[in-house]
Write a protein that binds this DNA or RNA. Structure first.
Lengths: 148, 148
DNA sequence: GCATAATACTTGCATATGCAAGTATATCGG
DNA sequence: CCGATATACTTGCATATGCAAGTATTATGC
């Protein structure tokens, strides 16, 4: 295993799996939220009018359209998001971040920040963090998925 | 969003999602393998005697024990792995990499390398790759999950 | 030694997700 | 304008996964 691209891809995937596993437990216990639901809210909050179509969400989250449909249903019932039709195109069904969703996201963000802190704690200093941030920025820069 | 730990965690998760999505399509089409099945084989290949208990696999893959049980069943049927009991502890059921599994993994590794190459292509040079590798090595170093 | 606790694995049930097909609407070419 | 095609979303079905409970075996405390 000498190829640095392979090594980096493996390490990225494994690191992400570890972070995701930690987050899943915390989000579920503290907010009754899944990691993907958190990201859905993040994408909405990041969007111009706090709203996105389902296909846009699917692309940004790297999941299928049907997954978005089924994720949104319970979130809508709980009042975190609203459904909004488009005046010009009757096919579109926007998912809109509600006030309750915004509050929920605010709380979840704190948990995320805490976990992110724990994760890097004791292993990385500010210089490392800045270095990684700059490296990854080039990977996510072009992507519509970028949340940062 | 000023906390560099938060930014890095978000970018790591999103980057990994993108890589994983690409791999999933390729692995499924080319090898009839899921990304997690690939990692299971990688962990076995990485282990001292090409074998691990199910709980060890579960820990290293950040999945539940039941998931390992159910992942292994079809892989065993296809001959990629064998089941092996422990002489001292009758509870243990090792998963062993078979010759067929080793071949399969070899092919899948090539696909992985190709995809990893595409992913970093045009965006990163060797210096960047080395830098990231060094940064991530500290994150995965302590972990038993480390494949690199 | 033996009862209790811990560990390894499996299984029932519920949820999550993708793919393919179905429905509704919009766009395009003539 | 109209049929063919494309797009947005939903739904049926199959697979993947976690949690909790169940079974079998081993370790621990007395």
């Amino acid at each position: 295993m000498e190829d640095s691209r392979v090594i980096n891809a493996l390490r990225l995937l494994q690191t992400a799996d570890e972070i995701r596993a930690r987050l899943a437990g915390e989000f579920s216990a503290v907010h009754g939220l899944s990691v993907n639901e958190f990201f859905l809210l993040m994408h909405l909050d990041n969007a111009p009018a706090k709203r996105l179509s389902r296909v846009e969400l699917a692309k940004r989250m790297y999941v299928s359209a049907s997954t978005v449909t089924r994720m949104v249903a319970p979130m809508e019932k709980l009042g975190m998001v609203d459904r909004e039709a488009d005046a010009r195109d009757a096919r579109l069904a926007f998912v809109v971040l509600s006030d309750a969703g915004r509050r929920k996201l605010g709380e979840a963000r704190e948990t995320f920040a805490k976990q992110a802190g724990y994760f890097f704690e004791d292993r990385w200093d500010e210089d490392d963090l800045t270095q990684l941030s700059q490296l990854l920025s080039r990977l996510v820069a072009g992507s519509a998925s970028n949340l940062t």
